[in-house]
């Protein structure tokens, strides 16, 4: 196959991953075409965050079997920064604090990292994008002079993840419980940010516990992960079913 014939999608094949000797992912299969956003749901402690972190290359996890292909290319051997430069982006469930580094400075470096050798992020490019991202998120410009997540409330951290997402313009996003800890207004702001990017050039996973976020970002597909495997997939109605019936019935699917 030549380059142009590669499918525009993330394909996760029989993915197994462990922390130390402890297996967490036990054979995940998923295809997420570019242009689609899929919800990933499931009870706590069943491997959703692990899947997200393995996708972006967190060295804490070891892939013991299977593969992840992005646009037909296996990314397992790639460093996290290479994956990011390919267009992968994870909005972390627990973003970390980096004291002393302003958001502005960090965003500029991260944008620069995506450029070809010798190409500079121009001030106009940076500032233009920043203005429009802040507007989408209904955020004051002064925020970018603060240190990255340092002393941020949970909601501010989540909003900051979306700010980075808007600035870096990834092709594949993974949002890990971005909705948890947000009030309705903040939730709308975040959803607004994601929806502003939505289109045929954006694919990804939205990991969430609740229907709430999915009222604003309607998923193309919904997958349920239990005990490190996808146990059921369906349309948006599956999320609604989980919302009304709870998770007990899916737990049984895993043992069935």
């Amino acid at each position: 196959m030549t380059q142009t014939e590669q499918p525009h999608q993330i394909e996760i094949r029989n993915l197994h991953a462990s922390v130390g000797d402890l297996p967490i992912l036990k054979g995940v299969d998923l295809i997420i075409p570019r242009g689609e956003l899929h919800a990933v749901m499931g009870p706590n402690g069943n491997g959703k965050s692990t899947l997200a972190k393995v996708m972006v290359g967190d060295p804490e996890y070891t892939v013991t079997d299977g593969d992840i292909l992005v646009d037909g290319v296996s990314i397992l051997e790639m460093e996290p920064d290479e994956r990011a430069r390919m267009g992968l982006f994870l909005a972390f469930q627990y973003p970390v604090e980096i004291p002393g580094v302003t958001i502005a400075n960090f965003l500029r470096l991260a944008m620069q990292a995506r450029k070809e050798e010798g190409e500079e992020v121009s001030f106009t490019e940076f500032y233009g994008k920043l203005q429009s991202a802040l507007k989408t998120l209904d955020w004051d410009e002064s925020i970018v002079e603060r240190y990255l997540n340092a002393g941020f409330s949970g909601g501010e951290k989540k909003r900051n993840e979306i700010l980075q997402m808007l600035m870096l313009e990834p092709t594949y996003i993974i949002m890990d419980e971005t909705d948890s800890g947000l009030d309705v207004d903040a939730l709308k702001v975040v959803a607004n940010g994601v929806n502003s990017m939505r289109g045929e050039n954006l694919g990804g996973l939205i990991i969430t516990h609740y229907q709430r976020l999915l009222d604003y970002i309607v998923p193309d597909r919904v997958h349920i992960i239990v005990d490190g495997k996808v146990v059921q997939s369906g349309g948006p109605e599956l999320a609604k079913k989980l919302d009304s019936q709870g998770y007990d019935w899916v737990k049984e699917l895993a043992t069935a």
Binding site: D58, E60, D81, L90, P95, V96, I98, R114
Partner: peptide, 14 residues
């Protein structure tokens, strides 16, 4: 390590 991972996931080298 989490800080390094966070920044790397945004495209910065280690």
């Amino acid at each position: 390590d989490d800080q390094i991972m966070y920044l790397q996931s945004r495209g910065l080298s280690k």
